[in-house]
Computed example of a mutant assay.
Amino acid sequence: MGVFAALGTALCWAIAARLFSGTGNAFSPLTMNFWKGLISIAILAVVLVFVQPTGLTTHTILWLLLSGLIGIGIGDTCFFKALQSIGDSQAVLVAETLAPLFTALFAMAFIGEWITWQQWIGVAVVLLSVDMVIKARKRSTTHVFATSGYLYGVGAALCQAVGAVVSRDILSSGEVDAASAAFLRLIGGMFFVVPFIAFTKTKYMPTIAHGKRIWPAFFMATLLGTTAAIYLQMFAFAYAKAAVVQTLIATSALMSLGVAWAFGEKATKATVAWSAIALIGVAILVSFGAPTTN
Score class of each variant (00 low, 15 high):
K138C: 05
W63Y: 11
G258Q: 05
W120C: 13
F27L: 02
F183C: 05
S252C: 12
W274P: 10
S172Y: 00
I111Y: 01
A253G: 11
H59G: 11
A10I: 01
K269I: 11
W13E: 08
F4V: 12
M255Y: 06
T57R: 12
L98F: 06
L44C: 00
A283M: 10
F263Q: 11
D169K: 08
L158S: 14
F219T: 10
L66H: 05
E175M: 10
W13F: 13
L93P: 04
I134R: 02
I187P: 14
T58L: 15
R139K: 13
L254G: 13
I284S: 14
A136D: 15
T60G: 10
G225R: 04
W215C: 04
N25C: 00
K138L: 02
L93I: 00
I70P: 12
Y152A: 10
V94C: 12
R18E: 15
L224M: 04
I208F: 01
S172G: 04
D169H: 09
A229P: 04
Q246A: 15
A5Y: 10
K269P: 01
G55E: 04
A273Y: 10
S167A: 11
V259Q: 08
I74F: 13
I197K: 06
I284N: 13
I72N: 15
K201Y: 01
M108T: 05
I284T: 11
R137Y: 05
M132P: 06
V3F: 12
F80H: 07
A124W: 00
L83K: 09
V133D: 13
M220T: 15
M32V: 02
Q118T: 14
G211N: 05
R213W: 05
G264E: 04
I61S: 06
A178D: 06
I86G: 11
S40P: 02
L186W: 03
Q119H: 05
Y239G: 10
G8Y: 01
V133A: 07
A290C: 00
V125R: 07
A156H: 02
A283S: 15
T141W: 05
I284D: 12
G68Q: 07
L65S: 08
I249P: 07
L257F: 04
F106G: 08
K241T: 05
D169V: 00
M205D: 12
S287E: 09
A26W: 00
V282D: 14
A283P: 09
A262M: 13
L98W: 03
T293E: 15
T207P: 01
L11H: 04
I208Q: 04
L64A: 06
W114S: 14
L232I: 01
G281N: 05
L232T: 05
A276G: 14
A181E: 06
G22N: 09
D88H: 11
I280L: 14
K135L: 15
G122Y: 01
N294G: 06
R185I: 02
L248K: 10
I249L: 12
A178P: 06
L56D: 06
V92E: 08
V286H: 15
G87K: 05
W274E: 04
L186I: 01
L285I: 07
G153I: 04
V193S: 13
L254T: 02
K203N: 13
I277S: 13
L101T: 07
I61Q: 06
T251N: 03
A273Q: 14
A99D: 07
F288C: 02
A17N: 12
G2D: 08
S40R: 02
S40C: 09
